[in-house]
Write a protein that binds this DNA or RNA. Structure first.
Lengths: 193, 193
DNA sequence: GTCTATATCGCGATAGAC
DNA sequence: GTCTATCGCGATATAGAC
């Protein structure tokens, strides 16, 4: 079998996804993933630090999308509008990636250990975005707040989108930003509807 | 030593905190925690499902604080102001708890596995808050957005507070809410400063 | 409480790729 | 011939089953 590390890595990722879909995360051993990919267990652990991480290998792309999107927004656009544009820009790749990400989301949702890892990945991404915003001249506090808030809107939109199979993610994103603006920026003494 | 389950649980939590502070999370085994608490390893795992969970036993109080605080806000207060008041109400207990929570934060920050668990606990708390807001009559989308956003402000304030030892948490919270209102609700065409 | 599966990692040897 | 991925074996500790 091929000696290229990258290929083995991809075979491992595919094998893991298949096995987890077939039997569920807990019922699959690292040795089985390795066997299906045609390598030994030891090789598995050289590519991935633990059994969970195989699933999130593709998530690195998300970081790239965000980084590129934010870089493409002119530097003179203020913080919040810049983040809004960034979110809009990554809607398209997210929608294109829907089939894969839906399957992944299903596995993750069903497994507490994977939900933990996913939550931690999200936190890391928010902190990366914070760093990028600081690079644009924002204060740390401001950057962190904007990154958290904008990511919250997107994450919530994604959740709603997954729950409503026919809809477009862009619609949920727009709705989220509008809702947020109304809630946070609007008149504060309004009585409940 | 006492036979009360609750007491053993507390001794385990204290022993774990001590050992983790002394040697770091990874260099401590569950058996050692149990030994210092005067019980067997098996007893440890009866109280806590894994090695990480001992540290977060106290976090249940946070959920209680939030639940009680939100319940104390009159039902006719709109969503966002209600969450703002809720956050204000839990500032006091958080400040009172500072010494313990600072030590915990230090251990968590130094250990990836614990950061994951902490991120997951936060996500769970946000979803609990979302449920409470839905109970007040909000739509799921609205509730989730408000819960995420308000928690983001608090979490960010806590981080800034920890970084600046002399300050009061309330100040950081106020600053965060003001900042957010200005960013999200303010004029959108402003040029950068 | 005891027993066991299995995740995870260290080490030395081997064998494709360039 | 070097690299470096991979192998094979062994050790330890978590976590769950009986």
């Amino acid at each position: 079998m091929p000696r290229s590390g990258q290929e083995a890595r991809e075979r491992l990722a595919r094998a893991a996804l298949e096995l987890f879909l077939e039997r569920g995360f807990d019922a699959v051993t690292a040795a089985e993933i390795a066997a299906r990919a045609g390598v030994t267990e030891r090789t598995y652990f050289r590519h991935f630090p633990d059994k969970r991480e195989v699933l999130f290998d593709g998530e690195r792309r998300l970081t790239e999308w965000v980084t590129e999107a934010l870089a493409s927004v002119p530097a003179d656009v203020p913080l919040w509008p810049a983040m809004r544009r960034t979110v809009d820009l990554i809607v398209a790749p997210l929608e294109a990636n829907r089939p894969d990400s839906d399957r992944l989301a299903a596995i993750v949702k069903a497994t507490p250990a994977l939900r933990e890892r996913a939550a931690s990945k999200e936190a890391r991404l928010v902190s990366i975005i914070t760093g990028l915003l600081v690079g644009r001249g924002a204060s740390t506090d401001e950057a962190a707040l904007v990154a958290r808030t904008a990511w919250g809107v997107l994450a919530q939109a994604i959740e709603a989108w997954r729950a409503a199979p026919g809809t477009s993610l862009q619609v949920h994103v727009d709705r989220g930003f509008t809702l947020l603006t109304g809630l946070v920026g609007g008149a504060q003494g309004d009585p409940p509807r």
